[in-house]
Write a protein that binds this DNA or RNA. Structure first.
Lengths: 195, 195
DNA sequence: AAACACTAAGCTGTATACAGCTACTTATTT
DNA sequence: AAATAAGTAGCTGTATACAGCTTAGTGTTT
């Protein structure tokens, strides 16, 4: 389920949507609050946060470092299965129609990479950073549609090359560079807006 | 509040202890559960986890990497205040009597180092790793009392040297090395027990 | 005597009722 | 007419009641 930043969530509404009471809904919301994705305000509601620029680049920089560590920290062996899935994802990028599909492929790619991380602690933060940063990417895409599709295709191509020789370190660095690319885009696009 | 691993916590008891109802207590417990510090089991209770060795070294390795990043990721300027606090902590290590005091000093030292971290995202994980690993250290200390006191003194001495020249990178690496030392101790001491 | 089944006590998970806070609307006063 | 104050609707935070699960203890049967 995707909610745009600034959306005001109401526990009672969500509870009815999911057919539960407010209690378990609140649990999930609290978890999201710990992760910095939403903010609950007494008497108001639960606000989907719109990460401020400084905090965002902090997270992005850590995400870069995390990606660099993927191949270093006891990675899982990259096998034929991973390669096949990469090829399948690459093929799917040839017939992309809308943002939801692009996001879905990006998400599956993320899960694939995550499954290569051997260090449990690294896996958790890598996953967390993904969810914290991907929302901004969401907002950025509409203007850069074709450019982003091409970038994703290039990225997967490079990942396939690395996967063919079981080089998880290279996979980590490919990810790192494409994360750096998005960070650059964001810094370019957001600064004129805010300042 | 410290609880030994394996302790069974009961929400109702905690609620009465803190003078609250179970609801806010459950919130805190859920947070601890997300952080991997406890596990709630339906019909049983909430168990303070005893981190398994593999997961522990995963976290320790990440803690090493996090420490290495302290000086790299836009660190806060290390000023006279920090130096003074280091010297004060160093002096307190000369008259240590029990584990609680050693733990308190270690904790204050941790907070001091944490305050030097400029990257908010790094600060959060560095803090989290500390809390996840420090419990094991707790269990290890009683046998190694004098050795640990001496190590802490040496560590603070080295930190003071680095702080005198405002070298946060060096501070990060000093921390890294002393974390590595504890990791080595743990791997030595726990393996004969378990295998 | 041992093993199995059942029962009861006690825990977490969930639903619901209530208290406290916030923001918006409306009414009154200047 | 504008500004301020009071009231009200609706939200989150907290307390409590209930349902479901787990385990230990006891009693019965083989």
């Amino acid at each position: 389920m995707h909610y745009m930043p600034g959306t005001l969530l109401r526990e009672a509404v969500l509870a009815e949507e999911f057919g539960l009471s407010r209690t378990p809904i609140r649990q999930v919301i609290k978890k999201l609050e710990f992760e910095g994705l939403v903010v609950s305000q007494n008497g108001v509601g639960t606000l989907v946060t719109d990460i401020e620029l400084e905090g965002l680049s902090d997270i992005y920089e850590m995400r870069l470092k995390a990606a660099e560590l993927i191949g270093v920290m006891n990675p899982v062996r990259c096998g034929q299965k991973h390669l096949n899935q990469l090829i399948k994802l690459r093929r799917q990028t040839d017939e992309l129609e809308n943002i939801e599909e692009l996001a879905r492929i990006n998400h599956e790619l993320h899960n694939l990479i995550t499954s290569l991380i051997g260090n449990q602690a690294l896996r958790i933060v890598y996953d967390q950073y993904y969810f914290q940063t991907t929302r901004v990417w969401y907002r950025l895409i509409p203007d850069l549609w074709q450019q982003e599709v091409t970038a994703l295709q290039t990225e997967i191509d490079e990942l396939i090359v690395a996967a063919r020789r079981n080089d998880v370190t290279a996979i980590g660095f490919v990810k790192r560079n494409f994360i750096a690319r998005v960070l650059f885009l964001i810094q370019q696009n957001t600064q004129p807006q805010h300042i």
